[in-house]
Design a protein around this nucleic acid. Structure first.
Length: 333
DNA sequence: CATCACAA
DNA sequence: TTGTGATGG
Protein backbone atom coordinates (compact mmCIF):
# COMPACT_ATOMS: atom_id res chain seq x y z
CA UNK A 1 0.00 0.00 0.00
CA UNK A 2 3.00 2.26 0.09
CA UNK A 3 4.38 4.49 2.78
CA UNK A 4 1.91 6.54 4.85
CA UNK A 5 3.43 9.98 4.58
CA UNK A 6 0.15 11.62 3.66
CA UNK A 7 -0.04 13.83 6.74
CA UNK A 8 3.37 15.32 6.03
CA UNK A 9 2.82 15.87 2.34
CA UNK A 10 -0.64 17.40 2.68
CA UNK A 11 0.51 21.01 2.36
CA UNK A 12 2.79 20.36 -0.59
CA UNK A 13 0.19 18.93 -2.94
CA UNK A 14 -0.63 21.40 -5.65
CA UNK A 15 -3.73 20.99 -7.79
CA UNK A 16 -2.67 21.38 -11.39
CA UNK A 17 -4.65 21.47 -14.62
CA UNK A 18 -4.21 18.53 -16.96
CA UNK A 19 -2.93 20.87 -19.64
CA UNK A 20 0.18 21.59 -17.61
CA UNK A 21 1.05 17.90 -17.55
CA UNK A 22 1.90 17.40 -21.20
CA UNK A 23 5.09 15.43 -21.75
CA UNK A 24 6.41 12.07 -20.70
CA UNK A 25 4.75 10.42 -17.71
CA UNK A 26 6.41 7.44 -16.05
CA UNK A 27 3.44 5.44 -14.85
CA UNK A 28 3.76 2.98 -11.99
CA UNK A 29 2.08 0.12 -13.86
CA UNK A 30 1.32 -1.98 -10.80
CA UNK A 31 -0.39 0.94 -9.16
CA UNK A 32 -2.43 1.78 -12.25
CA UNK A 33 -3.46 -1.83 -12.83
CA UNK A 34 -4.49 -2.23 -9.23
CA UNK A 35 -6.69 0.81 -9.51
CA UNK A 36 -8.36 -0.49 -12.64
CA UNK A 37 -8.92 -3.95 -11.23
CA UNK A 38 -10.23 -2.73 -7.93
CA UNK A 39 -12.50 0.01 -9.21
CA UNK A 40 -13.84 -1.14 -12.57
CA UNK A 41 -16.49 -3.45 -11.23
CA UNK A 42 -20.20 -3.87 -11.05
CA UNK A 43 -22.01 -2.78 -7.90
CA UNK A 44 -21.79 -6.28 -6.41
CA UNK A 45 -18.07 -6.41 -7.04
CA UNK A 46 -18.05 -8.56 -10.17
CA UNK A 47 -15.29 -7.36 -12.49
CA UNK A 48 -15.79 -6.93 -16.21
CA UNK A 49 -15.31 -10.26 -17.94
CA UNK A 50 -15.51 -11.71 -21.40
CA UNK A 51 -17.95 -14.51 -22.19
CA UNK A 52 -15.51 -17.14 -20.95
CA UNK A 53 -15.01 -15.46 -17.60
CA UNK A 54 -11.63 -13.84 -18.21
CA UNK A 55 -11.26 -10.54 -16.36
CA UNK A 56 -11.14 -7.50 -18.63
CA UNK A 57 -11.43 -4.56 -16.21
CA UNK A 58 -7.79 -3.64 -16.65
CA UNK A 59 -8.08 -3.69 -20.44
CA UNK A 60 -10.99 -1.29 -20.31
CA UNK A 61 -9.04 1.01 -18.01
CA UNK A 62 -5.92 0.94 -20.14
CA UNK A 63 -7.78 1.68 -23.35
CA UNK A 64 -9.82 4.64 -22.16
CA UNK A 65 -7.29 6.20 -19.85
CA UNK A 66 -4.52 6.18 -22.40
CA UNK A 67 -6.73 7.61 -25.10
CA UNK A 68 -7.39 10.49 -22.74
CA UNK A 69 -3.70 10.84 -21.89
CA UNK A 70 -2.68 11.02 -25.53
CA UNK A 71 -5.40 13.49 -26.39
CA UNK A 72 -4.10 15.78 -23.65
CA UNK A 73 -0.53 15.59 -24.83
CA UNK A 74 0.56 13.22 -22.08
CA UNK A 75 2.90 10.51 -23.35
CA UNK A 76 2.86 7.64 -20.88
CA UNK A 77 5.45 4.94 -20.41
CA UNK A 78 4.34 2.08 -18.19
CA UNK A 79 6.93 0.76 -15.77
CA UNK A 80 6.30 -2.78 -14.54
CA UNK A 81 7.78 -4.41 -11.45
CA UNK A 82 10.64 -6.81 -11.86
CA UNK A 83 11.92 -9.18 -9.20
CA UNK A 84 10.81 -7.96 -5.78
CA UNK A 85 13.58 -7.48 -3.24
CA UNK A 86 13.83 -10.02 -0.42
CA UNK A 87 13.02 -7.15 1.91
CA UNK A 88 9.49 -7.19 0.50
CA UNK A 89 8.74 -10.81 1.33
CA UNK A 90 6.66 -10.12 4.44
CA UNK A 91 4.58 -7.49 2.67
CA UNK A 92 3.91 -9.78 -0.28
CA UNK A 93 2.87 -12.57 2.05
CA UNK A 94 0.62 -10.24 3.99
CA UNK A 95 -1.05 -8.94 0.85
CA UNK A 96 -1.73 -12.48 -0.26
CA UNK A 97 -3.49 -13.14 3.03
CA UNK A 98 -5.50 -9.94 2.84
CA UNK A 99 -6.64 -10.85 -0.68
CA UNK A 100 -7.64 -14.36 0.35
CA UNK A 101 -9.61 -13.03 3.29
CA UNK A 102 -11.29 -10.39 1.16
CA UNK A 103 -12.22 -13.03 -1.39
CA UNK A 104 -13.94 -15.05 1.29
CA UNK A 105 -15.77 -12.07 2.73
CA UNK A 106 -16.85 -11.08 -0.78
CA UNK A 107 -18.47 -14.47 -1.27
CA UNK A 108 -20.11 -14.28 2.14
CA UNK A 109 -21.53 -10.82 1.51
CA UNK A 110 -22.81 -11.93 -1.89
CA UNK A 111 -24.58 -14.93 -0.45
CA UNK A 112 -26.44 -12.80 2.06
CA UNK A 113 -27.20 -10.17 -0.57
CA UNK A 114 -25.17 -7.35 0.98
CA UNK A 115 -24.12 -5.62 -2.23
CA UNK A 116 -22.29 -2.72 -0.67
CA UNK A 117 -20.21 -4.97 1.54
CA UNK A 118 -19.59 -7.28 -1.40
CA UNK A 119 -18.21 -4.46 -3.52
CA UNK A 120 -15.86 -3.37 -0.75
CA UNK A 121 -14.35 -6.81 -0.28
CA UNK A 122 -14.24 -7.51 -4.00
CA UNK A 123 -12.03 -4.45 -4.42
CA UNK A 124 -9.57 -5.68 -1.83
CA UNK A 125 -9.47 -9.10 -3.45
CA UNK A 126 -8.01 -7.70 -6.69
CA UNK A 127 -5.03 -9.68 -7.87
CA UNK A 128 -2.48 -8.69 -10.47
CA UNK A 129 -1.45 -12.04 -11.91
CA UNK A 130 0.72 -13.01 -14.85
CA UNK A 131 -2.24 -12.94 -17.22
CA UNK A 132 -3.21 -9.41 -16.23
CA UNK A 133 0.36 -8.28 -16.79
CA UNK A 134 0.75 -10.06 -20.12
CA UNK A 135 -2.54 -8.81 -21.54
CA UNK A 136 -1.83 -5.28 -20.34
CA UNK A 137 1.52 -5.28 -22.11
CA UNK A 138 -0.08 -6.68 -25.24
CA UNK A 139 -2.68 -3.90 -25.34
CA UNK A 140 -0.13 -1.19 -24.59
CA UNK A 141 2.02 -2.42 -27.46
CA UNK A 142 -0.94 -2.37 -29.82
CA UNK A 143 -1.67 1.18 -28.70
CA UNK A 144 1.90 2.18 -29.53
CA UNK A 145 2.65 2.99 -25.90
CA UNK A 146 6.05 1.97 -24.51
CA UNK A 147 6.38 -0.17 -21.41
CA UNK A 148 9.43 -1.43 -19.64
CA UNK A 149 10.26 -4.08 -17.08
CA UNK A 150 12.08 -2.63 -14.11
CA UNK A 151 14.90 -4.73 -12.70
CA UNK A 152 13.25 -4.47 -9.30
CA UNK A 153 10.60 -2.04 -8.06
CA UNK A 154 8.69 -0.17 -10.77
CA UNK A 155 8.46 2.97 -8.66
CA UNK A 156 12.22 3.02 -8.27
CA UNK A 157 12.77 2.72 -12.01
CA UNK A 158 10.12 5.34 -12.76
CA UNK A 159 11.71 7.70 -10.24
CA UNK A 160 15.11 7.16 -11.82
CA UNK A 161 13.74 8.01 -15.26
CA UNK A 162 12.42 11.30 -13.94
CA UNK A 163 15.75 12.05 -12.26
CA UNK A 164 17.47 11.41 -15.57
CA UNK A 165 15.07 13.71 -17.36
CA UNK A 166 13.64 11.00 -19.59
CA UNK A 167 10.25 11.56 -18.01
CA UNK A 168 8.68 14.63 -16.49
CA UNK A 169 7.06 12.99 -13.51
CA UNK A 170 6.05 9.73 -11.87
CA UNK A 171 2.37 8.82 -11.89
CA UNK A 172 1.30 6.92 -8.79
CA UNK A 173 -1.11 7.21 -5.90
CA UNK A 174 1.62 6.11 -3.50
CA UNK A 175 4.27 8.37 -1.99
CA UNK A 176 7.09 5.86 -2.26
CA UNK A 177 8.44 7.55 -5.37
CA UNK A 178 9.46 10.49 -3.19
CA UNK A 179 11.60 8.19 -1.06
CA UNK A 180 13.11 6.83 -4.27
CA UNK A 181 14.03 10.40 -5.12
CA UNK A 182 11.50 11.25 -7.81
CA UNK A 183 11.73 15.02 -8.26
CA UNK A 184 8.08 15.20 -9.26
CA UNK A 185 5.14 12.98 -8.45
CA UNK A 186 1.63 13.36 -9.85
CA UNK A 187 -1.32 11.75 -8.12
CA UNK A 188 -4.94 11.50 -9.20
CA UNK A 189 -4.01 11.49 -12.84
CA UNK A 190 -5.68 8.17 -13.21
CA UNK A 191 -8.86 9.43 -11.63
CA UNK A 192 -11.57 11.20 -13.55
CA UNK A 193 -12.72 14.72 -12.85
CA UNK A 194 -15.66 13.68 -10.75
CA UNK A 195 -16.20 10.95 -8.28
CA UNK A 196 -19.06 9.99 -6.05
CA UNK A 197 -18.24 9.36 -2.45
CA UNK A 198 -21.14 8.45 -0.18
CA UNK A 199 -23.61 10.18 -2.41
CA UNK A 200 -21.66 13.42 -2.70
CA UNK A 201 -19.91 14.30 -5.90
CA UNK A 202 -16.50 15.78 -5.43
CA UNK A 203 -14.10 17.00 -8.05
CA UNK A 204 -10.76 15.31 -8.11
CA UNK A 205 -7.98 17.07 -9.93
CA UNK A 206 -4.44 15.94 -10.56
CA UNK A 207 -2.04 17.00 -7.83
CA UNK A 208 1.62 17.59 -8.27
CA UNK A 209 4.19 17.12 -5.54
CA UNK A 210 7.72 18.42 -5.91
CA UNK A 211 10.29 16.67 -3.77
CA UNK A 212 12.40 19.81 -3.30
CA UNK A 213 9.41 21.70 -1.99
CA UNK A 214 8.57 18.95 0.46
CA UNK A 215 12.13 18.78 1.74
CA UNK A 216 12.59 22.52 1.92
CA UNK A 217 9.19 23.05 3.51
CA UNK A 218 9.77 20.43 6.18
CA UNK A 219 13.45 21.36 6.57
CA UNK A 220 14.58 17.80 6.23
CA UNK A 221 16.84 15.87 3.88
CA UNK A 222 15.75 13.01 1.67
CA UNK A 223 17.63 10.68 4.00
CA UNK A 224 15.54 11.95 6.88
CA UNK A 225 12.36 11.52 4.84
CA UNK A 226 13.37 7.91 4.28
CA UNK A 227 13.96 7.47 8.01
CA UNK A 228 10.49 8.85 8.73
CA UNK A 229 9.17 6.34 6.23
CA UNK A 230 10.93 3.52 8.05
CA UNK A 231 9.37 4.61 11.36
CA UNK A 232 5.83 4.73 9.95
CA UNK A 233 6.36 1.65 7.80
CA UNK A 234 7.23 0.90 4.19
CA UNK A 235 6.79 -2.07 1.88
CA UNK A 236 10.09 -3.27 3.34
CA UNK A 237 9.37 -3.07 7.05
CA UNK A 238 6.38 -2.88 9.32
CA UNK A 239 6.30 0.47 11.02
CA UNK A 240 6.51 1.16 14.71
CA UNK A 241 3.13 0.85 16.34
CA UNK A 242 1.85 4.24 17.42
CA UNK A 243 4.18 6.27 15.23
CA UNK A 244 2.60 8.18 12.38
CA UNK A 245 4.04 10.75 10.05
CA UNK A 246 3.81 13.60 12.54
CA UNK A 247 5.46 11.73 15.39
CA UNK A 248 7.94 10.29 12.95
CA UNK A 249 9.23 13.64 11.76
CA UNK A 250 9.48 14.93 15.31
CA UNK A 251 11.60 11.96 16.32
CA UNK A 252 13.84 12.12 13.28
CA UNK A 253 14.37 15.83 13.77
CA UNK A 254 15.25 15.21 17.39
CA UNK A 255 17.80 12.62 16.34
CA UNK A 256 15.91 9.85 18.09
CA UNK A 257 15.66 7.48 15.11
CA UNK A 258 18.25 4.97 16.30
CA UNK A 259 17.08 5.04 19.88
CA UNK A 260 13.45 4.50 18.94
CA UNK A 261 14.29 1.60 16.66
CA UNK A 262 16.52 0.02 19.27
CA UNK A 263 13.72 0.16 21.77
CA UNK A 264 10.67 -0.68 19.66
CA UNK A 265 12.02 -2.89 16.87
CA UNK A 266 15.48 -4.05 17.90
CA UNK A 267 15.62 -6.78 15.26
CA UNK A 268 15.28 -4.34 12.40
CA UNK A 269 18.42 -3.22 10.61
CA UNK A 270 17.48 -0.03 8.81
CA UNK A 271 20.65 -0.10 6.72
CA UNK A 272 19.43 -2.26 3.83
CA UNK A 273 16.15 -0.35 3.64
CA UNK A 274 17.88 3.01 3.51
CA UNK A 275 20.21 1.63 0.88
CA UNK A 276 17.33 0.27 -1.17
CA UNK A 277 15.55 3.61 -1.25
CA UNK A 278 18.76 5.50 -2.00
CA UNK A 279 20.27 3.13 -4.53
CA UNK A 280 17.64 0.76 -5.85
CA UNK A 281 18.36 -1.47 -8.83
CA UNK A 282 17.49 0.50 -11.96
CA UNK A 283 18.25 0.16 -15.62
CA UNK A 284 19.25 2.39 -18.53
CA UNK A 285 18.33 -0.31 -21.00
CA UNK A 286 15.12 1.12 -22.31
CA UNK A 287 13.94 3.14 -25.20
CA UNK A 288 10.90 5.31 -25.30
CA UNK A 289 9.06 5.36 -28.56
CA UNK A 290 5.44 6.22 -29.13
CA UNK A 291 3.88 4.89 -32.29
CA UNK A 292 0.45 5.41 -33.76
CA UNK A 293 -1.98 2.79 -32.51
CA UNK A 294 -2.64 -0.38 -34.47
CA UNK A 295 -6.38 0.10 -34.57
CA UNK A 296 -7.05 -3.15 -36.43
CA UNK A 297 -4.95 -5.05 -33.94
CA UNK A 298 -6.68 -3.44 -30.98
CA UNK A 299 -10.07 -4.36 -32.42
CA UNK A 300 -8.88 -7.89 -33.01
CA UNK A 301 -7.72 -8.23 -29.44
CA UNK A 302 -10.47 -6.41 -27.59
CA UNK A 303 -13.49 -7.14 -29.77
CA UNK A 304 -12.77 -10.53 -31.35
CA UNK A 305 -11.00 -12.02 -28.36
CA UNK A 306 -12.37 -10.22 -25.29
CA UNK A 307 -15.90 -9.34 -26.39
CA UNK A 308 -15.58 -5.56 -26.25
CA UNK A 309 -18.14 -3.63 -28.26
CA UNK A 310 -16.68 -2.77 -31.64
CA UNK A 311 -18.57 0.49 -31.69
CA UNK A 312 -17.18 1.62 -28.34
CA UNK A 313 -13.63 0.67 -29.17
CA UNK A 314 -13.75 2.41 -32.53
CA UNK A 315 -15.22 5.53 -31.03
CA UNK A 316 -12.55 5.63 -28.35
CA UNK A 317 -9.78 5.30 -30.90
CA UNK A 318 -11.24 8.00 -33.11
CA UNK A 319 -11.20 10.44 -30.25
CA UNK A 320 -14.43 11.92 -29.02
CA UNK A 321 -16.67 14.32 -30.92
CA UNK A 322 -15.39 14.92 -34.45
CA UNK A 323 -14.99 18.64 -33.99
CA UNK A 324 -13.36 20.47 -36.83
CA UNK A 325 -9.70 21.03 -36.35
CA UNK A 326 -9.51 18.62 -33.48
CA UNK A 327 -6.69 16.21 -33.86
CA UNK A 328 -7.39 12.53 -33.65
CA UNK A 329 -5.11 10.05 -31.98
CA UNK A 330 -3.18 9.31 -35.16
CA UNK A 331 -2.09 12.86 -35.77
CA UNK A 332 -0.19 13.04 -32.52
CA UNK A 333 2.59 11.05 -34.12
C1' DC B 1 -12.73 3.90 -14.15
C1' DA B 2 -15.08 5.97 -18.51
C1' DT B 3 -18.91 6.41 -21.33
C1' DC B 4 -23.66 6.97 -22.46
C1' DA B 5 -28.55 8.03 -22.16
C1' DC B 6 -31.60 10.62 -20.14
C1' DA B 7 -33.30 13.92 -16.58
C1' DA B 8 -33.49 18.40 -14.60
C1' DT C 1 -26.10 22.89 -20.35
C1' DT C 2 -24.83 20.02 -16.35
C1' DG C 3 -25.75 16.24 -13.35
C1' DT C 4 -27.03 11.45 -12.17
C1' DG C 5 -27.57 6.51 -12.73
C1' DA C 6 -26.75 2.46 -15.37
C1' DT C 7 -23.67 -0.20 -18.01
C1' DG C 8 -19.52 -1.88 -19.95
C1' DG C 9 -17.26 -7.18 -20.61
Amino acid sequence: MGVSLRDLILDYRKAVPMESLGGVAAVDAHNALYQFLSIIRQPDGTPLMDRTGRITSHLSGILFRNVNFLEKGIRPVYVFDGKPPDLKKATIEQRRNVRAEADERWREALSRGDTEEAYKHARSSSRIDATVIATSKELLSLMGIPWIDAPSEGEAQASYMVQKGDAGYVVSQDYDALLFGAPTLVRNLTVSGKRKIRGRTITISPEKIQLVEVLRGLSISREELIDIGILVGTDFNRGIRGIGAKTGIRMVRAGEFDAVLREKDPDLDPGPIREFFQNPPVSDEYQLEWRSPDTAGIERMLCDDYDFSRERVRKALEGSAPKTGQRTLDTWF
